[in-house]
C-alpha cells in the first residue's frame, strides 16, 4: 500500500505501507495555517524540498514577509528573520553582505514585494545582490481582506475596487518579471503558475536556477509563482486554479525571462 503523509517518516513504518512522499526535513511539523486551495502551502513545500535537495538548511537565513506568510518562520527549520512589510530584500541584503557564506532567501507576496516594497525590490535587483526571491503573486492582499494589489487584473473585483479594477482610476497591473528584466543585476527570472503537477515540476526547475544564481554569486534569482487566493477571490479552489490558467496567465505569461546562469546538466536536459 502507498501512503501520502504530512508527517516526516517515523523510523518504524507500518510494514504494509511504503512512504512515497513526506514533509521535507527542512520543514517543521507545524500544521500550515493557509486556507483550503491556497497555493502558499504548496510553495512552502517546494521551498522545503529545495532546502533539502541543496542541503542548505543549516546555512540558510529565511527572510519572511508581512502578509499571509507572516508565520513562514514557524514552518522552516532554518534561522529566520521577520522583516517589516516590503523590506525583506533590504534585510536580506544586510544579512548576505554581513556573511556571504549564508544562503539567504526572501518569501514575499505581491503586496509586500510589488507595492510597499517595490523600491527595495528594484534596488536589490539593480545592485545585483546574490539573493533568492520566492515571489507569490496572488493578485490581491490576502491577509488584510482582499484589497487590490499592483498585480490585480483589470476588472478584478477586490474590496478596494468593488466594481472591478478600472485602469482609469487604479492603473494597470505591474508585471514584476517584465519590469525587472531590464536590470543587469538580475541573474535569473522566471514565472510559473501553480496549477498542475507539470507546472509544479517546472516551478522546481526554476527554483533550482534561482538558488544557483545565489550560490554561484551571479546576482538576483527570482521565481514568481502565479498563486491562488480562493478566499479573497470568492472562488472554489478548483475554479481558482482554472482562473489562473485561463485569465491570469494571459496577463502574466509564464516562462523564463532572464537566465544568465551557466547551463547545468539538468537544465540542458530540461529535467525537473
Amino acid at each position: 500500500m502507498v501512503s501520502i503523509t504530512d508527517q516526516k517518516p517515523e523510523p518504524a513504518q507500518q510494514d504494509n505501507f511504503e512512504c512515497v512522499h513526506h514533509r521535507p526535513d527542512s520543514m517543521t511539523d507545524k500544521q500550515l495555517h493557509y486556507c483550503p486551495g491556497c497555493t502558499h502551502g504548496l510553495i512552502h513545500q517546494l521551498v522545503g524540498q529545495m532546502l533539502d535537495e541543496f542541503n542548505l538548511v543549516k546555512q540558510t537565513v529565511a527572510i519572511c514577509p508581512v502578509g499571509c506568510a507572516v508565520f513562514a518562520y514557524e514552518y522552516f527549520e532554518c534561522d529566520s528573520i521577520e522583516a517589516s512589510h516590503g523590506r525583506a530584500l533590504a534585510v536580506a541584503t544586510a544579512v548576505k553582505r554581513s556573511d556571504p557564506s549564508r544562503f539567504v532567501f526572501t518569501y514575499q507576496g505581491d503586496g509586500d514585494l510589488a507595492a510597499i516594497g517595490m523600491a527595495e525590490t528594484i534596488h536589490a535587483a539593480a545592485r545585483g545582490e546574490s539573493l533568492t526571491v520566492f515571489f507569490v503573486n496572488n493578485g490581491t492582499y490576502g491577509m488584510t481582506g482582499g484589497q487590490m494589489a499592483p498585480t490585480s487584473l483589470i476588472g478584478q473585483h477586490t474590496t478596494t475596487t468593488p466594481s472591478g479594477r478600472d485602469p482609469a482610476i487604479a492603473g494597470r497591473p505591474i508585471g514584476v518579471c517584465e519590469l525587472l528584466s531590464s536590470l543587469g543585476g538580475v541573474a535569473y527570472l522566471a514565472r510559473v503558475p501553480m496549477t498542475s503537477p507539470k507546472n509544479v515540476n517546472t516551478a522546481k526547475r526554476y527554483m533550482r536556477n534561482a538558488i544557483r544564481a545565489q550560490i554561484e554569486r551571479r546576482g538576483l534569482g527570482l521565481v514568481e509563482f502565479l498563486s491562488t487566493c480562493p478566499v479573497q477571490w470568492h472562488m472554489a479552489p478548483v475554479a481558482a486554479m482554472k482562473y489562473v490558467d485561463e485569465k491570469v496567465i494571459g496577463v502574466f505569461p509564464p516562462g523564463e525571462f532572464v537566465n544568465r546562469l551557466e547551463p547545468s546538466e539538468s537544465s540542458k536536459e530540461g529535467g525537473n
Binding site: 538548511v57 543549516k58 546555512q59 540558510t60 537565513v61 519572511c64 507572516v70 508565520f71 518562520y73 522552516f76 527549520e77 532554518c78 534561522d79 529566520s80 528573520i81 521577520e82 544579512v95 556573511d99 557564506s101 549564508r102 544562503f103
Partner: peptide, 18 residues
C-alpha cells in the same frame, strides 16, 4: 540569539516582533 544560520546549533533562531 542571532539568526545567522544554524550551523551546528540544535535549534533555529527566529528574529521577530510578532
Amino acid at each position: 540569539w542571532s539568526a545567522s544560520g544554524r550551523q551546528g546549533r540544535a535549534n533555529k533562531n527566529v528574529v521577530h516582533s510578532l
